[in-house]
Write a protein that binds this DNA or RNA. Structure first.
Lengths: 338, 338
DNA sequence: ATCTAATTTTAGATCGATCTATTTATTAAA
DNA sequence: TTTAATAAATAGATCGATCTAAAATTAGAT
């Protein structure tokens, strides 16, 4: 195995100098740097991060723990986190808990053992501040995204779900809809409750009875959502519009509308949530609440970077607002309101 | 920072013994292990992987480099790789190149520096064996998945794209379709060429003129695919069925069919490729060629694990066949063949 | 009780970087 | 030319595990 010492010998300098070159230190003269770099190439030197990490007080690695990497929201988030952290020379290690508490515990442990400089995490349901205590104990900063643990003294980046969902419903109300269904999530009950709260806020603000609006929950699959939408549309309440928990459910609901022989955006209006990349590419292009997951990722990255620099900063929370992206799945109701 | 030595002192044993306990060695007596474990908990010991990796000849980490983590094919692949490698005590580090050669080069370097025990990679276009030479030089095994570099002496796990696409077209031919369109990929030209080759094989095997079958390529988005499908269907060739490069394109094509006021699976038959999770959940459920990405992931994991154990094994290639999953987007043609 | 063999435990060297403190070389000012 | 100040290079200790080889303990056989 070729080490710093081998490079040093070939370049005719000391081990310490080669080390400085590795780290792009300004302390080394240009001429020397060139010489060392040539020597490195000549002997085929490969930097040993384990050795560096052992000695150094920080590892320039950051952990990102998320519940479902296949979900576009989280891959966008990842991109945003990297936008900020990669230019700072930090490597982001991604890990997927798949919504399993056990897997999350395992990953938390592993990242602790590799001495990450910090952690960005979207916790699985049931996580408590206690689960993250080992990090606080040895002073590794944590930034939460999207999901927040009660009473945990961590930085946070996320969105205002309640207000966002309220805006979605208000958009439909403004178009003249009076019978609006809500297709919620059977998968994330906690977030679902908050978003449904926003939905009710909107309905009540127009003096309509929130209780009489038809509601259903489903899994985040096209098929489930299609069935749910069909059920709602053909129910006695006969909604002319649907607020959907997220874009995937809205997609499924669109398919349900097609299956009923109706035209989405004409016979039935639909609003999604998240504005994942494919929303704009949907047919018809999906009206949805944009949460700018990539931007949230940038926020999280920035919060973490700041705290790594200064652990004693006051706890900071960045809550963005979801904004309406009006496209072609929403329009005034076709059938007259009853 | 609390180290092995601190634990050893509290437990009243030597550093070496504590180290053995950390690694679940059978060399240590049950009574001693208990004692040490209690001590670890008492002093709040956290294992230091960097220190271990420095001394030890392997790190129990494996790299997985893929071009697009948001693509369900690759998240399934990841799951499969972990299925095999996690039980062996190896941590899988995921990294996304986003189809960028530059990012890939950077990630390859980083993983080399962290001394992964092995690498599973789906290379971006343009990668040569030379790019992977540093790995071979220091004896880190590589397993390729899905994509293969010419003349590279690495293990490989993937599928027979040509045969798979041939089977897709044959399925439509068997149903009686005589005018079949092909919607290819504008993103992965190399794979596209292979799959289109399979399509032609099928058509020619029935003594039909492959050249007269309408063809188009598009990006992997719903919108693009919808437009492409509409173009093909309303072209002079008037295909009654479409073979799609992958499921995403098939989804978009379905939406295009709906937009034309036609019914997918009735007026126009569609076959996808990949059988991602949402294919079965699509409306109507999508007929597609299943590649069992998770299984391929298991293959890759197994190949890598074997080679880590024995570098001198002969190069091994596992090419699976895609199998038809007939669902509801394919049926005999409605309009009589011209 | 003695000897052998098997089982546990351990001391001390070692992995390859970085850090601190110091020395050496270079430049600018007197 | 000398001195002071700055820039560049270095020696040697150090990080916290694992490894090797040897020592201590225990068990089994005689």
């Amino acid at each position: 195995m070729v080490t710093l010492l081998d490079v040093a010998k070939v370049a005719g300098v000391s081990r310490a100098t080669v080390s400085l070159v590795c780290r792009d230190s300004p302390l080394v003269a240009e001429k020397t740097r060139k010489k060392v770099e040539r020597a490195m190439a000549e002997v085929g030197y490969v930097y040993n991060r384990s050795a560096a990490n052992l000695r150094s007080s920080f590892t320039n690695t950051v952990g990102l723990i998320i519940p479902d990497i296949a979900n576009p929201v989280y891959s966008d988030l990842l991109t945003g986190v990297e936008d900020v952290l990669t230019p700072l020379g930090k490597a982001v290690f991604i890990a997927d808990t798949n919504e399993s508490e056990e897997r999350q515990a395992h990953l938390l442990q592993r990242m602790l053992e590799m001495r990450v400089d910090g952690l960005v995490i979207s916790t699985v349901g049931g996580t408590t501040a206690e689960d993250l205590a080992p990090y606080t104990r040895i002073g590794v900063p944590i930034t939460q995204v999207f999901r927040m643990i009660e009473d945990a003294p961590f930085d946070y980046a996320g969105i205002n779900n309640r207000l966002g969902c309220r805006r979605a419903a208000e958009h439909l109300l403004d178009l003249g809809h009076r019978h609006i269904g809500f297709i919620g999530s059977a998968v994330s009950p906690s977030v679902n409750q908050v978003r449904y709260g926003g939905f009710c806020d909107a309905v009540r603000s127009r003096d309509l009875p929130a209780e009489s609006m038809p509601t259903i929950t489903c899994k985040h699959t096209f098929g489930d959502a299609a069935v749910a939408a069909k059920k709602l549309i053909s129910s006695a309440a006969a909604p002319t519009a649907l607020v959907c928990f997220n874009d995937i459910i809205a997609f499924g609901a669109t398919l349900g509308v097609y299956e009923l022989g109706l035209t989405p955006g004409l016979d039935v209006s639909l609003v999604g949530f998240d504005d994942i990349e494919s929303a704009a590419n949907w047919r018809p292009p999906l009206t949805t609440m944009s949460i700018e997951a990539r931007q949230i990722g940038r926020h999280a990255g920035t919060l973490l970077a700041n705290r790594i620099k200064d652990l004693d900063l006051p706890v900071c929370s960045m809550v963005s607002e979801a904004v309406l992206k009006q496209r072609e799945t929403t329009a005034p109701p076709r059938r007259a309101a009853v």
